[in-house]
């Protein structure tokens, strides 16, 4: 790969839209980390696509001067699948919240992981529905009182990281929106990774979870040990099972072909030397052959 001709500053990726987020929202940290990661990777804005579903965090594509698509609830990865398979030359990033990605769009995560879709998926996890004003999410801790669980949340929470590892993602990380430096590096690694990279960013909601969530998360977060081996799936799973701490860092990283590689291989098999059939040649197949 030749060296990029232009260098970018994080600010180059800003659009003139002001984020709709509340002051103090964790998503500002994620957006800033993304700007920085994109600048240090010198991503060409016109060859980059950012897609999202619906939610507070799904507004993010509007704030980045690449091609962007804020679609419908839960379908960021569905659209990203089309973009990346149809145009494997593009850098594709999907973003969204925990309601969007773990509830209504949960099915697409499993299949994107399984396909090893070469997309970076940043899940901004605030353990609550923010845009609809404070209802229980699949990541809300059991017992928490929310607008939709007056007596306390009766359901256990899902761990997005464990789900991604178990369904075949080849890069799985957990970050914190309040740790700009590490989050930037993590997003950068995720974009560089060939295959499905899943980054679960704990991104507190000051409006519906108050200051306590931020304090609680800060107390629970713990960086991976320096000698941690991310290629060991079993130890990655072990860390996801720990409940009193939330481990941050790249928990799992593996190689393997992407859906794009496999589709390209199929095309090579089918084309037998790059010959594209004309419509008439395709129709010949329907002539009685005897």
């Amino acid at each position: 790969m030749s060296a990029p001709e232009v260098t970018y500053k994080p600010g180059d990726f800003k659009t003139d839209l002001k984020p709709v987020w509340c002051p103090g929202c964790g998503d500002f940290g994620v957006l800033n980390a993304l700007y920085r990661a994109m600048a240090s990777l010198s991503l060409e804005p016109w060859n980059t696509v950012i897609l999202s579903g619906i939610g507070c965090s799904s507004r993010l594509p509007g704030y980045v001067a690449t091609y962007g698509f804020n679609s419908v609830h839960g379908r960021a990865l569905a659209l990203a699948t089309g973009v990346k398979v149809a145009r494997p030359d593009l850098t594709v990033i999907a973003v969204g919240g925990d309601g969007d990605g773990m509830a209504i769009g949960g099915n697409h995560l499993m299949h994107s992981c399984r396909r090893n879709l070469d997309v970076t998926y940043i899940l901004m996890d605030n353990e609550i529905y923010g845009l609809t004003k404070g209802q229980t999410a699949p990541t809300t801790p059991t017992g928490d009182k929310t607008k939709s669980s007056y007596w306390g949340n009766p359901e256990p929470a899902v761990d997005p990281v464990e789900l991604a590892i178990s369904t075949g993602a080849t890069f799985v990380a957990r970050g914190f929106s309040g740790d700009l430096k590490n989050l930037t590096a993590m997003i950068q690694r995720g974009i560089e990774h060939r295959g499905f990279s899943f980054i679960n960013v704990m991104s507190p909601c000051v409006t519906w979870r108050g200051d306590s969530q931020y304090q609680l998360l800060k107390a629970k977060l713990q960086e991976l040990p320096e000698d941690y081996d991310p290629t060991n799936r079993a130890s990655a799973v072990k860390y996801t099972r720990e409940t009193d701490v939330l481990t941050t860092g790249v928990l799992y990283e593996a190689g393997g072909p992407t859906i794009g590689d496999r589709v390209e291989h199929i095309r090579m098999m089918a084309q037998e030397g790059g010959k594209v059939p004309t419509t008439r040649e395709i129709l010949e197949r329907f002539m009685p052959s005897m």
Partner: peptide
């Protein structure tokens, strides 16, 4: 694939139309 294109059998129809919108948005 013979014509130089690609096919994805998606997990459901929601993903199918989503991927079609994505592919088309990407210019294909």
């Amino acid at each position: 694939p013979k014509a130089g294109g690609s096919v994805v059998q998606t997990e459901d129809e929601l993903a199918a139309i989503g991927a079609v919108i994505g592919g088309s948005f990407a210019g294909v």
